[in-house]
Design a protein around this nucleic acid. Structure first.
Lengths: 152, 152
DNA sequence: TGACAACTGATACTAGGTCTCACTACACTG
DNA sequence: CAGTGTAGTGAGACCTAGTATCAGTTGTCA
């Protein structure tokens, strides 16, 4: 079953209609690179080679929000402080982002847990969430000979 | 030496002028709770009891940005995804934020390092930065008898 | 077929932030 | 002490990301 079918299934399962507009946003989302903004998606739905009517801005934002609620997308915090969107891997995960090419690796072996437990004890907090993003340069971008393959 | 004098010293050291407007923004920043927005600061400079002329919006934003550059302030990511500002403790640190009262604890015993090293090896990334925010409820806010002391 | 709810898109609005530009106020130089 | 150049200022236009409103459209089910 393809990505798009899985997402459509998830939409229907939650009682949402799968309309033409939503399908167009979905298509555009799946065609995006590692991470993107809502305007990137909007632009993609409006690309001249797509012979479909464009999607309204409000609808694009609404659909992205819906996909976020369904955990189809997640948000990713770039090192400049801007929030982008990204197709989400299932469950709790974090991002390792290459500053140069924008490539993103998801990682789940989230060994922040001991730290969080320690912190909870020391500070007497009930801790229920955390956010961790890691930034660096991937192997390809460190090789000076090759042109970095810009993912975004 | 007081906080404000230290900051002023840092400004001068970097060749910035210490003008009336900057002093007013600084006063307002130091009077803020755990974390704040630029508009909070603006409102504070315009509070009726202050008999000083108000600071322009652009100047407030410029000054906050300057203080950010000087590491006087840091940004803090709230769990709703909004970025606020906060007086920065020196050096690399993270935030533990109480969702209820907004209280913030800074922590530096940042044992993310082993995780980061492991990640660097596994993914073949040069890792140079990370961002970690932790959310929970502080002791005071967990006690049902007392009204939580709202820090912000 | 009708009715109702979900959805859509245009548009206005908000928050947070930058840009521009004419003006002001420092601080150095002669 | 005057002149001058530069840093800083404030008003306001503008930008980006996102939400609210609302009349009109579409899909679904009885």
């Amino acid at each position: 079953m393809s990505d798009i079918d899985l997402i459509i299934q998830r939409l229907e399962l939650r009682g949402h209609r799968v309309t033409q507009s939503r399908r167009r946003v979905l298509d555009a989302v799946l065609a995006q690179p590692a991470h993107f903004t809502v305007d990137d998606v909007l632009r993609a739905t409006r690309a001249p080679r797509r012979r479909q009517p464009p999607v309204g801005r409000a609808t694009a934002f609404r659909t992205i929000r819906l996909l976020l609620d369904l955990n189809v997308l997640c948000r990713i915090l770039l090192d400049d402080g801007t929030l982008h969107y990204r197709l989400s891997t299932r469950g709790h995960h974090h991002h390792l982002v290459c500053r140069d090419c924008g490539r993103v690796e998801d990682f789940t072996q989230c060994d922040v847990e001991p730290l969080v437990r320690e912190l909870a004890e020391a500070m007497e907090y009930d801790i229920d969430a955390h956010w961790l993003e890691v930034y660096g340069r991937c192997r390809a971008c460190r090789q000076p000979t090759k042109e970095p393959a810009r993912v975004r």
